[in-house]
Structures are given as C-alpha cells and as structure tokens.
C-alpha cells in the first residue's frame, strides 16, 4: 500500500499518469527500495538494495530490440536523504533499447543523488538514454552523475539531460566515452539555472576508432547569481573521426558562465570543430520578437524556452 502511494507521488511529481501502456517495461526506485519492476522479453534488470541506494545491472541480449522506451523512475519524496545508484548497463551485439530515466526530488531541501554508471555497447548496439529531472522549488539537491561509456564498433549512444521542473540546486555531470570504429556518440544537456544554482558539466569523447563520430551539445541559461561551467572535450586519434562541441549559454543578471571546449586532434585525417557562445540574448532575435509586440522580458523567455527545448 505504502509502496503504491510512493509510486503515485513520484509519477505525480513528474506530471505523468501512473498507468503504463502494455508492453512497456518500467522500474520504480525510491531511495534504496525497489518499489516496482516490470520487464519485457529480452530485457534483464537486476536491482539489489544497498544501505543508501541500489546496485543494478541492465542487460539487453544480443539481437534483441526493445520496441518501447523503458521507463525508470528514481527519486526521493522526503525533503532530505541520500540516494546512490550504481548501474552497469550492457547492450549486447546489435541489440537496441531506449530508456527514459526520471529522477524526481520534488520536495528536496537537502538531498544528495549520485549515479555511477558503466555503460557498454557491443558492436552495432543502440542505446538512447534520456534523463529528466524534477527538483524542489528551491533546488535543495546535489546531483552527481558519473558515466563511463564504451561504444563498440558501429554502436550508437545518445544521451540527453534535462531539468523539467524545479531548481537546479547543484548539478555536476561527468561523462566519459570511449568510441570505437564507426560508432556515433551524441550527448546533450539543456539546463536553466537561477538563484544560487551551480551547473558543472564535463563531457569527454575519445574517438579511438576510424570514422567514429561525436557531438557534444550543451545549452544553458543562467540568471540571478547562478553559475555554469561547461568543459567538453573531444579527442580524435583515428582517421576519418569527426566531432563537434557546441556550447550556448545565455546569461542574465549577475549570473556567470564559462565554456571550455577542448579539441584535441591527433590524426591528420580527423576533423573536429567547436562553437561556444556566451552572453545575453542575440539582439536580432530579441528585436524581431519585439517588433511583433513582445516586451523584452517575454521575448527573452521565449528565446530561452526554445534553446532549452528537448530534442527527443
């Protein structure tokens, strides 16, 4: 009974219903308790409860394509607490899966959420991981995701991080990917910070195999005295590797932002570009909307809304 109530509270905080379509695998984890676990054929999830969180493994067997995105809901309904998640994910040869992971801390005052992930994609595997966060109205949460990703030959990994409700609090992301021949890596994050929020993102793609591709995209908006520091790196050390690091940060008020794209090319037949733009809203974008009658604040909000719009 208690479990069902927590599940309902978690989905409510996400603004989602709690019914699931048939054929959709879903997992609900509150603190260190696995409240629900519904699997589909070919998908293996094992979750072991630890003192402050869980250790989990996710495995998709070779050749299996999980049709509908799997929903995983992590969270803590109380105002304080710690949730540590360790996950090992293995997507075997030519298998594919999409996971929408919602992390919800709707009443957070002092919560620590850590995620340590090891993600392995075998040859030809495909994995899309979408991470959506809900935080307390005043933030009240420190989120520390770490991921080590290995993309086998021709594998494709996409990840997308988004804060959909509440304030950032503190977010400190570190993702590190090793990309083998012909693999494709796309990592993107879109976050808006205000008050005293702190955002730190550190993504790294190591293009080791021929023709591997990586695109690292970060769109940030910060206001008040929030701070963002984005440090994204692409190392290209094989022929035909291509990459792009893209960072846009709009700052308002006393907010501050840093962008440090690092492009490290170690092969003459590699091609990596970067683009970083930090500052106020583009004046032509602003004036176009103002010329349609919007005041400056509304025009700015609309531009930022677009910049932070989810891609998937």
């Amino acid at each position: 009974m208690e479990n069902n109530k927590l599940i309902r509270q978690m989905y409510d905080s996400l603004g989602e219903g709690h019914g699931h379509e048939p054929g959709v695998a879903h997992v609900e984890i509150h603190g260190n308790k696995v409240l629900g676990l519904h699997l589909v054929d070919g998908l293996e999830i094992i979750a072991e409860e630890k003192e402050e969180g869980i250790d989990a493994t996710i495995r998709v067997k070779a050749g299996i394509k999980i049709e509908k995105p799997v929903k995983i809901c992590f969270g803590l309904i109380p105002e304080t607490g710690v949730q540590r998640i360790n996950i090992k994910t293995h997507i075997e040869k030519n298998a594919s899966i999409g996971i929408v992971a919602s992390c919800t801390f709707p009443f957070a005052k002092e919560i620590l959420h850590t995620m340590d992930a090891e993600i392995r994609l075998d040859e030809g595997a495909e994995y899309t991981y979408i991470e959506r966060h809900v935080h307390g109205p005043e933030g009240g949460v420190t989120v520390i995701p770490r991921a080590k990703v290995i993309l086998g030959k021709g594998a494709r990994f996409r990840t997308d991080f988004e804060l959909i409700k509440g304030r950032v609090g503190e977010i400190d992301i570190e993702y590190d990917a090793e990309c083998h021949a012909r693999s494709i890596l796309e990592m993107s994050a879109r976050i808006s910070g205000r008050g005293t929020d702190k955002i730190r993102i550190n993504e790294m793609a190591n293009l080791l195999g021929e023709d591997a591709v990586a695109v690292l995209t970060t769109n940030i908006a910060v206001r008040d005295s929030a701070h963002a520091r984005i440090e994204n790196t692409i190392i290209a050390s094989a022929a035909g590797t291509r990459g792009h690091v893209d960072c846009k940060e709009i700052i308002q008020g006393n907010a501050t932002a840093q962008a440090i794209p690092i492009v490290d090319v170690r092969h003459a037949k590699a091609h990596v570009t970067h683009e970083a733009a930090i500052g106020s809203v583009d004046s032509k974008q602003l004036e176009t909307l103002m010329a349609r009658g919007l005041n400056e604040d509304d025009a700015t909000d609309l531009i930022i809304e677009g910049l932070l719009r989810p891609q998937y």
């Binding site: 769109n219 974008q285 176009t288 010329a291 349609r292 919007l294 609309l302 531009i303």
Partner: peptide, 30 residues
Amino acid sequence: AERARLGITLAWQEPARYEGLTVEKFILAG
C-alpha cells in the same frame, strides 16, 4: 516593442534564426 504595439512591424531582409523555437510559437508570438 512600443512601436510594434502601435502596429508597426518589420520583416527583416535576413531574418533571425532561433534554436528550438517552433514555427508555430514564433508566429503566435506576434
């Protein structure tokens, strides 16, 4: 914005581009 509210507007020779803003929202804005 004040001029626009009187009903004056401009279609730019080279219009601005907006990441993520949909055509629908852009048109509705005005």
